[in-house]
Write a protein that binds this DNA or RNA. Sequence first.
RNA 1: GCGGGUAUGGUGGAAUUGGCAGACACGCAGGAUUUAGGUUCCUGUGGGUUAAACCGUGUGGGUUCAAGUCCCACUACCCGCACCA
Length: 806
Amino acid sequence: MKYDFAAIEPKWQKKWAEEKTFRCENHSDKPKFYALVEFPYPSGQGLHVGHTRPYTAMDVVARKRRMDGYNVLFPMGYDAFGLPTENYAIKNHIHPAKVTHDNIENFTRQLHMLGYSFDWDRVINTTDPAYYKWTQWIFLQLWKHGLAYKTTMPVNWCTSCKCVLANEEVVEGVCERCGAPVVRKEKSQWMLKITEYAQRLIDDLDELDFIERVKTQQKNWIGRSTGAEVTFKATTGEEIVVFTTRPDTLFGATYMVLSPEHALVKGWLESGLLNNADEVKAYQAAAASKSDLERTELNKEKTGVCLDGVKGINPVNGREIPIFISDYVLATYGTGAIMAVPAHDDRDWEFAKKFGCEIIEVVSGGEDVQKAAFTAKDETGILVNSDFLNGLTVKDAIPVITKWLEEKGIGTAKVNYKLRDWVFSRQRYWGEPIPMVYCDKCGWQPLPEDQLPLLLPDVESYEPTDDGESPISKMTDWVNTTCPCCGGPARRETDTMPQWAGSSWYFLRYMDPHNDKALASEEALKYWSPVDWYNGGMEHTTLHLLYSRFWHKFLYDIGVVPTKEPYQKRTSHGMILGEGGEKMSKSRGNVVNPNDVVAQYGADTMRTYIMFIGDFEKAASWSDNAVKGCKRFLDRVWNLSENLTDSLDYTSANESAIHKAIKKVADDIEAMKFNTAIAALMALVNDFYANGCSRGEYRTLLLLLSPFAPHMCEELWESLGFAADGMACQQAWPAYDESKTIAAQVQMAVQVCGKLRATITVPMDSDEAAVVATALADAKVQKFTEGKSLVKTILVPNKLVNLIAK
RNA sequence: GCGGGUAUGGUGGAAUUGGCAGACACGCAGGAUUUAGGUUCCUGUGGGUUAAACCGUGUGGGUUCAAGUCCCACUACCCGCACCA
């Protein structure tokens, strides 16, 4: 019989769905295992090959863990709020809810088509009011605990999406989603105080089993740096607080720089004491109109304006120093003001050279500071020109000066983070309404929890507006309401939550998806937490992964969830590229559609290939030819079933190879080395072709292959009569015997003076004398040892012997 | 600039602790089956040579009986962050 995947695959998918084969319960005698993949955004393009790599990988892991005897939760859902759907809806005049519904149907069909073993009774959808009720509920808790606040500040504004963006959503000065330029805009926004968790988000990484590059990327993003805040005085009397990581260089501070947006500058301008006010105002205006891209441009020349009419006073020596404004000082980091030490900071040096500022060396040990800044922070530098710090190393000087500053009351040790609070509102329609009401008398008031969910209203037009207001703001019936506090007239918040809201807690909902009393029951949370293994894309490291860790820590603090961290283990897959090694894109015409691959070769081939394609963590290029190779492998497995010997035992010819394969495939799946697991199975099948194959041997092969090619293995399992005690996926993983992975005879390499000369076959664990004797008897070896005497021999048991002859 | 990573045949990629480089595939060549094509099966396949010697893991050094693997110095490419004081 031919391998007819087109008939086999739907048959088993139907059976799994009808019998709810992969449904799991929230209690079990078995140990629990929670495997998670990132739920897709249900776009109109449908499932991409890029999705199949992580999904197949974790499906293999989940299937294997079930066979290992775990109670496995492997859920799926849809992260459906967001701009692409809304934009599609606007363009085609279809309601986003309808677009979402249709796209989800398509995704669901595709996910079934690929044979994933999700528990389909736990599907969630972030746009379902029963779901976003709890997203809103979490927001209210954040508000009640002072972690949500509304404030006016310069925010990132995407000119194309007509919407604000979080810092994390701006990539190289352009919108992460659409690539349009991002500009600064003053807007009143809801913010979440993720910065309050900065230190814990760093510290708790230590206890987690995350791949190293995820940890370092998160740490870099949070960007902790230690130093001191120092108070300078202006000649006009005001205090100017600066942040520095190098308080040891205070004596070398020869000028100060404020960000153009700094509040003091505004004050001085208003009081009219600046002689060059016009120049200053012009510079401020120029800085304000620059996009992020322009502001961060590489190798940009330093610009700035010296304030004429006010000076700073260096508190350590009383010297009056000039004050500049420049956009190389960021308003949003530290205090928005710096002391400039051109001798020991590259940026200050560059600025000083351009503006003719004084450069005073205060750390010796480098080159001439007039030629380049000396920035070493280790023990190589010795303080000079610094009064009581002279003679100390940089490392030793920092605590001395910090203590001195604290005693004098002009400075204090300080830790700063690059991480900013999370801009949490979006001026768009297709998102969760923020459940807040504004009353002129009572200010911002939370919607009472019993009024949740606050439903997204139907609007006639969900076009974004140029004035930066959400489309919902036009729905006056919905907007106008009463104050929950005083009962007077009030207005609802019309901005919606960002795309990342729903995904910040979705893994909790899977634990108890139909609960209408809580986001999930305490028992379910206790049973399943934390996620044991979460695989997802590196692109989410400083977005979703960071945001959800923050929310989870907050929920832990208020006693909702039982663990400090949501995910115990995090791994990440590489991208799938097109045939030529280029990114898949419509414009390049190299997009591979999983539907086509499944139609032509079957889901099992697709799954096997995507696992065989290469190192799971690295990018890999698609190859149609290599897909055929995997189809050929499955055909070979299938054809082998027609030539089995009757025995249920392992034959001596295959026994050791089978035991080795059982171990190898199991270890490789756990280590995500799927490519070598499949290579091992291919090698085993080649052995079976060479040596013949018994029913018992074939039975083991089916179990080992079943996580990768589940449909075909179930079909063969059934047709060969193994199904009396259930499907292949319900069997235990085959046992192996370590002692049987070892063959009686081994091949050993023989080197003479480090060069390979021959290969000999000796009994396992032969001693050195026996191996050397066998080696010396070999003609090829003799050719190189002839006329020489053996000086030394080195034996690597069962692998190699090296004969040193002179 | 800072941080992380990668470099192995014609191609994708293998190779715990240093121990037979190129597993497993793709491609290619030859053969068998087939009316033919396709499929399937078998054989070969790093370079070099009749065969050996010999040469081969980005480059240049080093340690070692033995280096893809360890050390030093480079080069190229990729990813992340980027005027963060």
